[in-house]
Write a protein that binds this DNA or RNA. Structure first.
Lengths: 206, 206, 206, 206
DNA sequence: CGCTAACCGAGACGGTACGTCCAGTCTTGCT
DNA sequence: AGCAAGACTGGACGTACCGTCTCGGTTAGCG
């Protein structure tokens, strides 16, 4: 199980021979992401990746279990560092911004790749694990943290489960994106307002 | 464009030549659906379908553009008549039932196929049109009708867009299903309550 | 066995119902020959013939056993009446003309079809019989008759077998034609002279 | 243009990557020839070859342009080394033996394949080139060499073209073989005598 | 003059082969 | 040992064509 392409390297056994080329690894992932955006998801072949990266197919499969794993890794590698979550403002304002960012993201090129990954994992349990742990959960944790901040700040009632709120904010947007329906800031705002209204029953009653 | 393989049926002009065998068509779609459930989505080959249906591959491609189109059609054919929506009860009660049914459906075998189709259309625009028009919109219309009934009955405020409400009810469930997270009646109920609370803010005030 | 497309019509049983359309038969054979010259031999499909002749494939197979049989028949029909053998001149002069005509023929469009048929029969025994009896033997008989005339006229020695002579005159030309090597009147003349010289050894002696 | 699937072999530039498996190549050609003799010519399918050789169809088409090319190559490979031309005896005696060998060959299993190839090339120009250069010309050259020896030895007159003589010896035999007419040593002898008589006009006259 | 058998065009169908494409593995020699 | 190059297996894809099979409509020529 080579999974995410990190050599076992468990502890002992200092590897002899020529070490793995980091340059090669990067070239592969970058080439993959380029092809991913250019050709869609199904239309990226292993030999295309190899060709684009100036690498042999054997090298691909030496480090990743299968093509899907490469695609996932390429997505991870490329999007790892682009999560500029707001630090300033009230938790609720930050949650609102977060919601709008989701809409933006889903419409972007990266979002398209995200949606394609979301599709691909339906057929491949191993890939699903990887996606769940390395993409879904981390992002979800970010969102939940904001909700928790809001709860702690008293802006949201305590009985609420952050994960539920985030799911309510994201789910409808993902569905629209999957169906290629319009998805913009206004719509995201409406969702935010609706979910917040549903989440704060205290307001009601005299 | 053979798309969904439905006869032109433009009233007049009876088609000449040997008519298409309805028996064959049914055999193909049934065999396809059987394989769909047995083997998953990617692991259904055209020749498997042909073999299982006792048909030649040429016949497949005479009526459908490609394998995906057959899969979509098989889904349509099989699930066409299984929408037993409640007729009794208040609109709001029916909407609640509708929401719970979604959860059930997404967990069922048919739901799995639905999710696979939802994934497959990401790669194939032609297929997407077919799915959108023949699966998504009709189902969506059913839900919207219930919401409209509720509005008409004064159970929901007038300023609301039915499609928005339905999207809020379904989106979060679809997302959980796609991620293979738990999805049960309790969760569906929570969603329903939350969305309803968000949709009826006026009642509360004062 | 419908073979050459003449209804059994053995003797009794006057056929009732609508008789076969002669127009259709002609249209098929003409269309076939047209395609034969245009597309080569393997590249004529039954549906092409049907299309070109404005006929259904069923009609084709009602009257001929298979595609090859149609092709043979088309050749027969078209070339039946184009054998204008010389009547004047000495038998030997006529034999010489005959030899030259072979060269011309093999280079012509009809000759090409002839060569293709000659090839096709290698794979199909039934077709071979038809070709042998309806094309090869009749033509061969014509040639043999001329040789016999020459023998009778004392222009060739009596111990000679006409079929052997004709084979010597034709075989080398067919081989060259099959290999697409040059084949012209001069070459044919050379063959004729050579065979005649070989056939009349007696003259020399003394 | 992979044509005859022979390595470029342009002296320099040793090819990089995994070299072609000679074992595989041999297995394919042998299996092909086996099928060729067993099933006839048209009844050899690419997948049969693949199956019989324990090879994938993709490998077939990597090295040969199409099925016909494989068949030609199989013939070449198998018959390459079976040309046991006589070295002893006078040139004329050797030419006579050569003529008789032709008759034998055309009746043999290999001869059948040869005739089928001769037919197949009528439809396929690329194949024709290959056949002409790799089968026809080499064999023809052998025959011509014998004739030339005879000329040099004064057994045949100088004004004669070897190729013409060979064509006269072979053409009639090929024609008979194509028509599946009897072809035996006696007939071949007769042809030899006839052609020799026609070729040596000097004998005549007192 | 109408009946009826047989014809015919259109085109669906089963079967079979084709040649292409791709995933993933294996082999060779270079670094 | 890593790696590029690229051969190889296995198997699906979608196309083409053959010869058969319905359909519905048409056309002799017997009654």
């Amino acid at each position: 199980m080579k999974a995410t392409a990190s050599r076992p390297s468990g502890l002992s056994k200092r590897p002899t021979g020529r070490p793995r080329s980091e340059k090669t690894r990067k070239a592969i992932l970058k080439a993959t992401f380029r092809l991913l955006k250019r050709n869609g998801f199904d239309n990226v072949s292993a030999q295309q990746i190899a060709g684009e990266a100036g690498v042999s197919t054997a090298t691909l499969y030496r480090w990743w279990d299968n093509k899907q794993a490469i695609l996932l890794d390429a997505y991870l590698e490329t999007t790892r560092d682009i999560l500029p979550h707001e630090k300033r403002g009230s938790p609720l304002a930050r949650l609102r911004t977060y919601t709008l960012r989701i809409a933006e993201f889903l419409q972007s090129a990266n979002g398209t790749v995200f949606l394609r990954l979301l599709s691909a994992i339906q057929e491949d349990p191993a890939l699903r694990r990887g996606f769940y742990e390395n993409v879904f959960l981390p992002r979800r944790a970010e969102g939940c943290a904001i909700v928790q901040d809001a709860i702690d700040a008293g802006e949201l009632p305590g009985g609420i489960q952050p994960d539920f709120i985030i799911n309510q904010l994201i789910g409808p947007q993902v569905l629209r994106a999957l169906m290629r329906q319009e998805l913009n800031a206004k719509y995201a705002r409406r969702i935010f307002d609706s979910v917040m209204a549903g989440a704060s029953p205290k307001k009601r009653r005299s």
